[in-house]
Design a protein around this nucleic acid. Structure first.
Length: 759
DNA sequence: GACTATTGCATTTTT
DNA sequence: TGCAATAGTC
């Protein structure tokens, strides 16, 4: 048998060697999905069933795309040049750069990230005197993105009422503004590509002919627009190899549609559905728990993970009186794990929402345990980097008003709101960009603006023959950005980051295989000959010339694309061996020797907002499933009876997900009775059965005489388990507000309701 | 135009 | 509780 097929299990082998037809691979957590994907590509190439140019592989993250490339090149020597592996957005960008004319875009269109999009919308509302209280920019953004993700232009949306009709109108104005300024947002990359393929038969057929195999990773996370894009690219003849796991679909709130897995089987006439259920990651107890939990969901495609690894340790469950005690317990257990030789970087503490990390961080910090929190500001999202990028964008595309407004007066150069207003007036009047409207401004503002133009023009002429890192360095110097941050007292980090931008460019060039004196000219000529009638001229020339994408753009444009599509590392500095802290969402795709899932409380996990949403509970359960399946050897679950959240004490009952796990795989640990570590809170901590001093209702008149206390766990015949959150009223008619978790908050008269106390 | 006070807001977020 | 964004002041 072929060497690359060695050591595949029968299901993996079957998947890898499927005939050239569309197939759905249901790949469970830890079942070797990436291996199957990469081996499939290697197998197709090695057996001569496809050429590198004939394969496209789509992922959701740049990290996954890189990983795929890396593992592929280890399996099989490939020329990655004309292999289309990338994210949906990255590949769309590629299409649009190649066919910018047919897509009606300027050659150097810039890509808006979420921040840019929001400020673009804010600006739109402002210039059109729209009340941003009535139409919050954020809502409008969701509205626009939602429509785009369903494939709808403003002209396709029917507003149901006046309010919505106005939103549609604003959506239309936003479209026009972006078009004028030569910018596209993330959703636009997809939508524009779809429209390009839909309208242009020659182009569509060309790509359908070219890509005989399209492989899609994390298929359960595709939204409707991405699905449509795949359909357009695939046509009737392309074999789409979709790999996904419906049980790990946790991005419905962002438009992901698990239903695409069903549609896919139908629309692509899938005869081959292969389940990868053998798990190579976790021990039996962990898998049993995961299987049992997810079985509570309905409408699954169905799957059960199994392993040969044995049961392993039981899952440890801890009930703590408070969030502080929970942290203390984690600290204790982490100590044991480290003592057992597990590296800190192999221990993850997961939580449902970011707000929960604070207490954990504080505890780890006090205990002197190094940790790393995922999910902070990413490199390209930092203000100083965005400023530098804006200058670069302006060099690349002076019509980019968003970039212009960001830096026209940063560092401050005496261009105030009045000047900008008159500039906007002129821009409207003469139908040109803000930058192009500068000559129309006279007076003091005009002088200041003219000096800005001199800076930009100066940079432009100076950098003409420079390589990218030198270009960026020049921008940092000449824009005054570097000097600004050098003068600022807390600017050291920012200066350092700006320096890193230059290094990032150097790295980018080497990684992207830039050949600075390569056939850019060929491409330029091809573009010159490209016509609407013959859009393929460029494509063919580019493919034949074996030109990487970076060749059809200037190095600067390519770097800007990179900056927009890849926000950079999403974690604190690497290096030392540190505990990993992150939300369950960001843990997807990762694995650790030991995993703590914290805050397993009704209202937190499952989150109260999700429970109210249609299908929300099932998504929360999948989230829990993802969390559990991250663990290789040890799994720890915990919840706290009281938790400080948003400045208020919350009394929660344990998560229903805990009760959905099989008892035989769990080992309940005795709760720690007293908080050993102090210093976080000045006030005494609410202990079980004891009220927090800060809680007002308790200090009322009935306090001493009452047999009921805040925090008391109770059982109600109908509502089940609950916790007393507050008490009100006098003696005979005391009423209690009780949190019954899934039944919600109930106000019960304690004289009437029959409640049983739970210790 | 920079600094300060106030207000409102708090689920998750691959690009 | 803690922040981020905004309005208001010098």
């Amino acid at each position: 048998m072929d060497k690359i097929l060695e050591n595949l299990n029968p299901e993996q082998l079957a998947a890898v060697t499927l005939p050239a037809q569309s197939a759905l691979i249901l790949a469970g957590a830890g079942s070797g999905k990436t291996r199957v994907l990469t081996t499939r590509i290697a197998w197709l190439l090695k057996t001569g069933q496809a050429s590198t140019a004939g394969i496209m592989a789509v992922t959701f993250t740049n990290k996954a795309a890189r990983e795929m490339m890396l593992r592929l090149s280890m399996l099989f020597p490939v020329n990655t040049r004309n292999l289309w592996v990338g994210t949906f957005h990255g590949l769309c960008n590629r299409l649009l750069r190649l066919h910018y004319r047919d897509a009606a875009l300027p050659q150097s269109f810039n890509i808006l990230d979420v921040q840019d999009q929001l400020s673009t919308i804010k600006r739109l509302l402002k210039t059109n005197n729209v009340d941003d209280e009535k139409y919050p920019p954020r809502n409008l953004m969701y509205f626009i993105n939602g429509a785009k993700e369903r494939g709808l232009r403003a002209s396709d949306v029917d507003g149901q009422d006046d309010y919505e009709r106005r939103m549609v109108e604003l959506y239309g104005m936003y479209e026009e503004q972006c078009q004028r300024e030569g910018v596209v947002d993330f959703a636009e990359l997809l939508l524009r590509s779809c429209e390009l393929l839909e309208r242009n038969q020659t182009l569509r057929e060309h790509y359908q002919e070219r890509f005989r195999h399209i492989l899609v990773d994390e298929f359960q996370d595709t939204n409707d627009l991405q699905y449509k894009w795949l359909k357009l690219l695939a046509g009737d003849r392309t074999a789409v190899f979709a790999v996904g796991d419906d049980d790990q679909s946790i991005y419905a709130f962002r438009g992901a549609n698990v239903g695409n897995m069903l549609s896919f089987q139908h629309d692509f006439q899938v005869n081959n559905l292969i389940r990868l259920e053998r798990n190579y990651r976790s021990y039996g107890n962990i898998l049993d728990a995961a299987n049992t939990l997810i079985a509570h969901n309905t409408h699954r495609l169905g799957k059960n993970l199994h392993t040969d690894a044995g049961d392993g340790e039981p899952i440890r469950v801890c009930e703590s009186p408070s969030d502080l005690n929970e942290v203390q317990w984690i600290l204790d257990e982490v100590g044991h794990l480290i003592h057992d030789g597990i590296p800190r970087s192999e221990i993850a503490v997961l939580y449902r929402s970011n707000a929960q990390s604070r207490v954990i961080e504080h505890g780890l910090f006090s205990a002197g345990i190094p940790y790393r929190v995922y999910g902070g500001l990413r490199f390209f999202e930092r203000a100083e980097i965005k400023h530098a990028i804006a200058y670069l964008q302006l060099i690349d595309n002076p019509d980019n008003n968003a970039a212009f407004l960001r830096v026209v007066n940063f560092p401050a150069r005496g261009i105030g709101a009045r000047t900008i207003e008159s500039l906007q007036e002129m821009s409207r009047l003469h139908d040109v960009s803000l930058y192009a409207a500068i000559p129309y401004i006279s007076g003091k503002g005009g002088t200041a603006l003219a000096s800005f133009v001199r800076i930009i023009q100066g940079i432009r002429s100076e950098v003409k023959n420079m390589d990218l890192p030198a270009l960026i360095q020049t921008v940092l110097d000449k824009s005054g950005l570097l000097m600004y941050y050098q003068k600022e007292k807390d600017g050291t980090d920012r200066v350092e980051n700006l320096g890193q931008l230059v290094s990032a460019a150097t790295q980018f060039l080497s990684e992207e295989g830039f050949l600075l004196d390569a056939p850019a000219l060929v491409v330029e000529q091809a573009h010159a000959q490209q016509t609407v009638d013959n859009p393929l001229l460029t494509v063919d020339r580019v493919i034949e010339a074996d030109v990487p994408l970076t060749m059809i753009m200037s190095p600067l444009a390519a770097f800007l694309t990179h900056a927009s599509l890849e926000a950079g590392e999403n974690q604190a500095d690497e290096g030392q061996d540190a505990l990993q802290l992150m939300t369950v969402h960001s843990a997807k795709g990762l694995e650790f020797d030991a995993v703590f899932i914290t805050g397993l409380e009704e209202g937190l996990f499952p989150h109260e907002n999700s429970v109210k949403e249609n299908g929300g509970l099932e998504e929360e359960r999948r989230l829990m499933y993802v969390a559990i399946t991250r663990a290789r050897k040890r799994l720890y679950l915990s919840y706290a009876q009281t938790r400080m959240l948003h400045g208020h004490m919350r009394y929660n009952i344990s998560s229903r997900f805990l009760s959905e796990l099989p008892e035989e795989n769990l080992k309940w640990l005795a709760p720690r009775k007293q908080s050993v570590y102090s210093g976080i809170r000045k006030e005494p901590v609410a202990q079980f059965g004891q009220p927090a001093v800060s809680d007002k209702p308790f200090s009322g008149s009935f306090g001493k005489s009452s047999e009921w206390q805040i925090g008391q766990a109770v059982i109600h015949k109908k509502f089940g388990e609950g916790v007393i959150v507050s008490l009100e009223g006098e003696r005979a008619n005391i009423r209690a507000r009780i949190n019954f978790g899934r039944f919600g908050m109930k106000l019960l008269d304690l004289g009437i309701a029959k409640l049983e106390r739970v210790s």
